[in-house]
Design a protein around this nucleic acid. Structure first.
Lengths: 282, 282
DNA sequence: GGGCGGCGATACCGGCCGGGTATCGCTCCT
DNA sequence: AGGAGCGATACCCGGCCGGTATCGCCGCCC
């Protein structure tokens, strides 16, 4: 199986339409049909059911879709990491760290300071990404190491070290009745009709249904809370540097959030190892 | 990057010789040279240093070798899992469990019994492999789930659940002076000149240097111990069903061995989930 | 119900690229 | 100095990849 074929299959499996997939791939439809046909012939199984109601993935097709995505990620990662290893040889080596924008900022700062103080430390490029995006960055090689937050982020498939565990607080506009309470229950804030929880985009870019406003980053969120249009449940560390129009109240029964540092298991780089060592020593 | 190119590069990087690699690949040397050259051109970096003393991997080449192996494993896994999904659709679904030959046999038996008792349980094919081979089986799709033993086996890159933890014992021929002791220290058995520890093959098939006899499986090992030519340090559970010519003595300071059940993280199969559930409930 | 539109499969063709053989250039060793 | 070993280059051929044209089939709608 060539990566070209896997790319074709993923494209077709994603929009379940040969013509559109071909257009997306910048090619004509017939060679695409043939490529998929060849794949099916060699695997000895149907991958797509050609019904009169359009295409459907067969069981084998669904399996191959998942596996093919993993392969393509690995190929992309191989390319990127090789290129980076090449530039590292002709300059100072650099390591790319992915972190959720607007989270764990002081932990991150301390980590960068601590690692930079080590002798022979590599340069650290920090890339800030959207919620839940870090694992993609690690998978496809755009990052070498990442800060993740359990249980929100999926850490499966990576090596991890736990760095810190913390409770969660609800961020409210100043003056809200709940703001005076020493702590609240999760149920008390999830159902507030005047302050609905915002909706974050799913990995595919769409939003779940619900009453809350759509939100793409922390700035939007802060603004919405100040405007009294939403509230948010975030890890304790998110209250540092809070605008004075906002108050934070601990949520007693919210799940604890564990910040972990994660890296691809087969990656054996001294720079990543140094970062992990610095992080666990914090 | 096509998988064909990656296969070529791995072959060349492995024996650091274009001619031999080409022969191994069943092709002539010139197209192989060109393929590697093209890879280097597109990546914009040298992968192999062509010195007068033969080939050397550059830093980028070493990175690509590691990444390419991961990609090729993933491709192989994709192919195998798709094929298995296809036959599962036209018959009873099966899941492949990899376990070290001769280890955790009663745990394995209990696990298989417990899972088989579940409603809707899939058929479980057990594949017994050499020490440390299980993770390769998981990586390249020959197995869906495996029993591993920390700290001997590398569990990185898999999701795992701990099943059991146990100490280790040294297996001695009956009548050996140490056999009467309630327990021994690790240092007391590693240096026995008359009973050297056996040498197991490394993943590449070669043996480490040392005085001990070479051993490839548990039968050979048992025989050697009975003959008084070796001793062995194994997990406690290995003493069950011991031949009466052998005695086991606890090793007080040997690292504890944890048996874990492991599976590839992206794998979402009800059969694997059921096995894991049955295993943790034991 | 017939025509039409949409979609995937098939037929056929041309160009590129992957793989082959022959040979060169270099280095090292004798 | 000469030959052996090895990788790079030159050149050729065939197959496959990708293109256009067209078919077959199914729904839909007037």
């Amino acid at each position: 199986m060539e990566t070209r074929e896997l790319k074709y299959f993923v494209a077709v499996a994603e929009d379940l339409h040969f013509g559109r997939a071909a257009r997306r791939l910048g090619m004509a439809q017939p060679p695409l049909s043939r490529a998929i046909g060849g794949l099916e012939r060699r695997l000895g199984t149907l991958l797509l059911e050609r019904g009169s109601r359009g295409l459907t993935l067969t069981g084998a097709g669904a399996v191959l879709l998942r596996e093919a995505r993993a392969v393509l990620d690995a190929v992309e990662a191989a390319e990127r990491r090789t290129r980076r290893a090449a530039v590292a040889a002709t300059g100072r080596p650099a390591v790319v760290l992915a972190a959720k924008a607007g989270a764990s900022s002081e932990l991150l700062a301390k980590l960068l300071d601590a690692y930079a103080a080590e002798p022979g430390a590599a340069a650290v490029d920090v890339v800030l990404c959207g919620p839940g995006e870090q694992s993609r960055y690690l998978h496809d090689g755009r990052a070498d190491v990442a800060l993740l937050h359990r249980p929100f982020d999926d850490t499966s498939g990576f090596d991890t070290e736990e760095l810190r565990s913390e409770g969660q607080v609800v961020i409210l506009p100043a003056g809200h009745p709940l703001g005076a309470r020493p702590h609240v229950r999760l149920a008390e804030v999830t159902g507030l009709p005047d302050l609905p929880l915002p909706r974050w985009p799913r990995p595919d870019g769409t939003f779940p249904d619900g009453p809350g406003p759509r939100v793409r980053d922390h700035t939007q969120l802060t603004q919405l809370i100040v405007l009294g249009r939403a509230c948010a449940v975030v890890p304790e560390s998110g209250r540092t540097g809070l605008s004075e129009n906002l108050t934070a109240v601990p949520v007693s029964d919210a799940p604890r959030v564990t910040t972990v540092i994660a890296w691809p298991p087969q990656l054996r780089s001294t720079a990543v190892a140094g970062l992990v060592r610095a992080a666990t020593a914090l």
